[in-house]
């Protein structure tokens, strides 16, 4: 059974229909990129997957023993967080909350887990630093470590590379590939950068106003929609996001 299945999903804000009759599924071990223009409803779809927004039609099912609260999430960053007085350790630890119900304090195991994830993200030396004083790339690593504390299975990322410089962006893609290949974590990433998406992902979900596409990268590059979108992105100059998949890994 698939990890996540959407059947004929419809999402609305009051009268505005953002997603209409969308069907796709995420298998365990997938690396799926969700692309589409600004305002096409990518973040809205993420909110639905995370249970922050109810489906207005169709249905969403979780399979493979995945629980809602076991999804790791890297949100689109807000200004509020950027100025928040908190140490890196406090932020990372807050990812462990889902595993211990009514228990009031963090356990030894939680702290251990947070330390492991910080190690994995190579931010152990920043543990006592103030979150708001870190660079954009470092902040993303911290949030990624927090998301990894919350999950062992599925990681959902919403435009994680926005505002990062090319070097840091390449770095982030390398980390994601590493998590996907070596730790077997399923990755579901929203991005506006379609070139990077086809370079790194295994599958693509394209959400458009009236059209949508769901399939493998190769099929996407062959499809009418994919060609059009890739061409448009290339003529804009696109974004640099490091080498090819082979080079990166």
């Amino acid at each position: 059974m698939a990890l996540l299945t959407c059947e004929h999903l419809t999402l609305r804000y009051d009268t505005l229909t953002v997603i209409n009759d969308l069907s796709f599924s995420v298998e365990s071990g997938d690396y799926l990129c969700i692309v589409g223009e600004n305002g096409s409803g990518k973040s809205t779809l993420m909110k639905c997957l995370l249970g922050l927004k109810a489906a207005d039609g169709g249905k969403l099912t979780l399979g493979d023993g995945l629980k809602r609260r076991e999804i790791g999430y890297l949100p689109q960053q807000t200004q509020i967080q950027r100025n928040f007085p908190a140490s890196v350790q406090e932020v990372v630890l807050s990812g462990c909350l889902n595993s211990h119900g009514m228990h009031p304090f963090y356990t030894k195991a939680d702290k251990q887990r947070a330390a492991e994830q910080m190690d994995c993200m190579q931010i152990t030396h920043l543990a006592n630093r103030c979150y708001r004083e870190l660079s954009g790339g470092q902040q993303q690593r911290v949030l990624l470590a927090r998301a990894l504390c919350a999950t062992k299975k599925l990681l959902i990322l919403d435009e994680p590379t926005t505002g990062l410089d090319p070097v840091v962006t390449t770095d982030l893609y390398r980390i994601l590939s590493h998590l996907h290949e070596d730790h077997g974590i399923t990755i579901l990433m929203v991005t506006h950068d379609v070139e990077c998406a086809v370079r790194h992902a295994g599958k693509i979900l394209h959400i458009g106003k009236n059209v949508s596409f769901f399939g493998t990268c190769a099929a996407y590059q062959e499809s009418e929609l994919g060609k059009r979108f890739l061409d448009a992105s290339a003529s804009e100059g696109g974004h640099c996001c490091g080498g090819t998949k082979e080079e990166v890994s």
Partner: peptide
Amino acid sequence: LLFYDKIFAVTFDENFARATGL
């Protein structure tokens, strides 16, 4: 005292807290 960690999580990132079942 009892809810310190949860209050931190809710204050820092409400959506993340909600997504992880708080």
